[in-house]
Amino acid sequence: MNFFFGIKSPHLNSKVTIPRFQNSSNPSKNHLLFELQIISDKWNISNIDNKESSGDFFIVNENIIEKDNFFLLATTDEVQKLINNGDKLIDLNNFTNTIPSYRANLQVLNSRGGFSSYQSEYPFSMTTKKGNILSPISSLLNKNADINIIFFKNIFQLPIQEKFSIFFINIKTKKILKKERVITNCLNEIIVDSTLIEPDIFLFTDKYIGVPIFCSIKNNYISLEHTHPPHEYIISENKFKVVSQLKQEFNEIINQTNC
């Protein structure tokens, strides 16, 4: 199961287009679009008015998108499990577990007509894990842009909003150049100074994982794309060992600084 999310930002508007069909079949009439949000320390799930649907797609417009909400496709029977127990997210169905991968579309746009998109899925399997995200900074940002933003979306299975940190670390000097406090179950927005957009600088999180989405805007043109976690660059069976060793180096840097 995948969740979907939008971007709420003073710099951009966004809309999410979620197909009602799997990529090898006809639209499902049974799967509706639901919104999830934490209310009073519980997961609250509510049906989104189906008038928002357009043909074979659900359209989630900016008036529905918040930093702390996200969406899923499910039948009314399936969501009942979550309504009955809002203490933890559960894997409700496999409708969006397809090969090739199920694709929604998160489009950001500005008032001058600039636009860019990205696929927007957040796999359920990521919501059950804690850990670290490691990503290069300069691969998707641009030093000469008007503004560079990293949107960091975390969805964690428990309905908590807990603080954790995102570090900007120079891998060669082993120095922390910047630390941002962010929260779980939220879309966090980080403005990136151009001095941090260098080949040796990496983003690294403590405690929680998430999806880093890199946005660069210049002259109203927008580029929006996500990076992959390091283990997706390794195909051999030793991938988790190799990545674990690399992350250990970054953990040592942040632990030394915290001492």
């Binding site: 842009a145 210049k218 580029s223 992959h228 051999s236």
Partner: peptide, 28 residues
């Protein structure tokens, strides 16, 4: 030692000097 890597990389497209729109690799 027995490493198989696949660099997904990022490709940016610019038209007539516009800022680039980036996308990552798609398939091995």
């Amino acid at each position: 030692n027995k490493l198989v890597i696949a660099n997904r990389c990022y490709i940016g497209f610019s038209i007539d000097g516009s800022p680039p729109s980036f996308v990552h690799g798609n398939s091995h």
